[in-house]
Each structure stands twice: as C-alpha cells, then as structure tokens.
C-alpha cells in the first residue's frame, strides 16, 4: 500500500517535471538558464518582424 502511495506521489512529481521540461523545450527555453531566470520566455525566442510604416 505504502509503495503505491509513494509511487503515485513520485509519479505526480515526475509528470510535473516532465511537463515543465517539455514546455521549456517547446518554447526554446533553456530550462531556467541564468539569462532567462524564471521568465516565461527565453531570450532566444525571436522577435516577430515589425513592419516599417514610413
């Protein structure tokens, strides 16, 4: 019984970590590098080109 409860807790933790990792990799985020810290977006996400109106 205790193995199952601990197993569920560990599985939840791993799923959370895996989801975070997957999201970070998908957004080209470096997993909390010193440049990005815990910001939502990484420095390496390119800016959408802005059209010049002049």
């Amino acid at each position: 019984m205790s193995t199952i409860i601990v197993g569920i807790l560990i599985a939840s933790l791993l799923i959370w970590a895996a989801k975070r990792t997957q999201r970070d990799l998908k957004n080209s985020k470096c997993g909390g590098c010193s440049g990005c810290g815990l910001n939502k977006q990484c420095h390496s996400i390119e800016e959408a080109p802005v059209q010049l109106k002049l």
Partner: peptide, 15 residues
C-alpha cells in the same frame, strides 16, 4: 542564478 539553477535541477535534471 540560484533560483534558475534549482529550477533546472527540479525539472530537466530530475527527469
């Protein structure tokens, strides 16, 4: 830097 390091350890390193 410390926060970022712990975050990395608790996500990609843990997985």
């Amino acid at each position: 830097k410390a926060k970022a390091f712990i975050y990395k350890a608790s996500t990609i390193i843990l997985v």
